[in-house]
């Protein structure tokens, strides 16, 4: 493989990896701390993209739109948690799967009513629309680099939040022993709501950044949700660090899985299944993922 193609694909893989990480971080926290399977996480990815795609023409500013769309998605997440999901934490996984599947149907149809069934195309913001030569002779889209930077930035922020703040301490404590945290006088319900809204915000951020790269449509949350699950399972449920490492690995494998077969004259048939093979292999080796969370 030519070196330049290799570099380009590496960057693509990293960029897809951080997108997956934004999805996985919220989901793995919800799963690890509240023991809650949330299939509706992809809906927030979709909502983020639709919110941003609608706001950009209105506000005229990509940044303002992103902030508003983030707040909007987090608010919807908050509402969903309070209205529907809160009572499900103590239920078994089957109930959670079913109820959140119901939420998927609801949100998909809501989006279809509000925005119509046709896909929306989002422009790359003018500021980042150019290309830059990181290495001579290989122009690379600025926007993808921005996505990469935002992902890494959010990763750093989450690390700080979880490892260095009081809120993070409570989150970690809640993951290890939720009864104890409650007994110590912490409002665990409020904590859960906040964590859930944070997760929704991150998913929405991933969605709105993916908007200009792919296409904004109703199915967009479904496929990435499954890949996010793969990331979480490989990383170890409840571990944000594991989610980051696994997201990068999966992003790389997925990207090169598409490129490599054609390089060797093979058909791309096996591209889509590479990450599932990876997951099965990891689980045979480490049944609880690469970084099993304590507790």
């Amino acid at each position: 493989m030519p070196l330049l193609l290799f570099l380009e694909q590496t960057l693509n893989g990293l960029q897809f990896g951080v997108t997956l990480f934004l999805m996985a971080a919220g989901l793995t926290l919800v799963l690890g701390i509240m023991n809650m399977v949330n299939l509706a996480h992809g809906a927030f990815y979709m909502l983020g993209a639709y919110f941003a795609a609608t706001l950009v023409p209105i506000t005229g500013s990509f940044l303002v739109s992103i902030v508003l769309a983030l707040a909007g998605a987090a608010a919807v997440g908050l509402l969903t948690e309070v209205v529907a999901l809160r009572t499900l934490y103590s239920r078994d996984h089957l109930d959670q799967v079913l109820a959140t599947f119901g939420l998927i149907l609801f949100f998909r149809e809501l989006v279809k009513i509000l925005w119509g069934p046709i896909a929306i195309f989002m422009d790359v913001p003018a500021l980042f629309s150019g290309r830059v030569e990181i290495v001579p002779g290989a122009p690379y889209p600025v926007y993808r680099l921005v996505v990469l930077a935002v992902g890494v930035g959010v990763g750093g922020f989450l690390w700080w939040l979880i490892a260095r703040t009081r809120l993070g301490m409570l989150i970690r404590a809640g993951a290890s022993n939720r009864e104890m945290v409650g007994a110590l006088g912490i409002d665990i319900k409020l904590l859960y709501t906040l964590v859930f809204a944070l997760g929704c915000g991150l998913a929405a951020l991933a969605g709105m950044m993916a908007g200009p790269l792919y296409v904004v449509d109703i199915g967009m949350g479904d496929d990435i949700l499954i890949k996010t699950f793969v990331v979480i399972v490989i990383g170890g449920i409840g571990s944000v660090r594991g989610a980051f490492v696994a997201a990068i690995i999966v992003g790389m494998v997925d990207t090169f899985g598409r490129i490599l077969p054609s390089q060797f004259g093979l058909s791309a048939t096996l591209a889509e299944i590479s990450i599932y093979v990876l997951m099965a292999a990891v689980l045979l080796w480490k049944p609880r993922g690469l970084f099993p969370a304590a507790g």
Binding site: V37, F229, V230, L283
Partner: peptide, 10 residues
């Protein structure tokens, strides 16, 4: 949860 996700992924 692992079982749910693995069957889903397969």
């Amino acid at each position: 949860v692992y079982f749910i996700m693995i069957t889903l992924a397969f």
